[in-house]
Design a protein around this nucleic acid. Sequence first.
DNA 1: ATAAACCCTTGAGTTTACTCTAAGTCAAGC
DNA 2: GCTTGACTTAGAGTAAACTCAAGGGTTTAT
Lengths: 124, 124
Amino acid sequence: MYSIQEVCNKTGLTAHTLRYYEKEGLLTHVSRSSGGFRQYSDEDMEWLGLICCLKNTGMPLQEIARFVQLAHEGDETLEERVKLLKDHREKLIARMDEMQKYLEKITWKVNFFSGKLAEYQKKK
Amino acid sequence: MYSIQEVCNKTGLTAHTLRYYEKEGLLTHVSRSSGGFRQYSDEDMEWLGLICCLKNTGMPLQEIARFVQLAHEGDETLEERVKLLKDHREKLIARMDEMQKYLEKITWKVNFFSGKLAEYQKKK
DNA sequence: ATAAACCCTTGAGTTTACTCTAAGTCAAGC
DNA sequence: GCTTGACTTAGAGTAAACTCAAGGGTTTAT
């Protein structure tokens, strides 16, 4: 079991953000100590890993919350969950392709301006 | 010369967004018709292409505005502009690597849940 | 010349994802 | 037992990037 601060150190999220995610239904049913402090289990950490993965690949928190909710509803939601993940995967691949194109453009620009800079410095 | 609506069609941005970008200093000195309507030149379109490229690869609008401003100041800002673009390029490459890792995780999850789904449907 | 469609500005409102504040509770060391 | 530091809640505040509304001027097609 990990305290909220330990989870912050492991994930890079702040305690505020962790509580916010809980409130938004991203990470549900985190257990509590006798005094009311959050205690994160290894399973919670697994979930957090997936949550960060989805979030950092551009899925809105609402959609992540939806996925989490479906997972709680059991096997009859498997189809919807698979669809949700597949759709996200397709969008991610499209976005990565787009990024690749943009990267090429930026690389071209960097080279172009580097050349201009070299020229400018020679003149001076 | 293109009207604002033509630019919307070409770029996918809304007229609201184009005016907003102008106000924020992303696209400056757009010329006007006698009646005060915006007229976008081919050079403006070039700039818009770069702006979208930088924006869609995660550069904040403020930083793009900074780049545009530097470009207006002439050759003595070439060094800073090159640095700005190079830094952005490095960050983009790092982000793309991260995306690749996340994509693998998501692919794994898709396969895992697809397997579970097939199993569940067979049982039923 | 007039209707319909398009464009203008200013300023307010919205969405997303946090981020912080206040006022209080709990835990660990001396 | 007391202090210090970590944790709690509810609710307010913030930043970025739009997005819209109101009220009015311009263009174009008939």
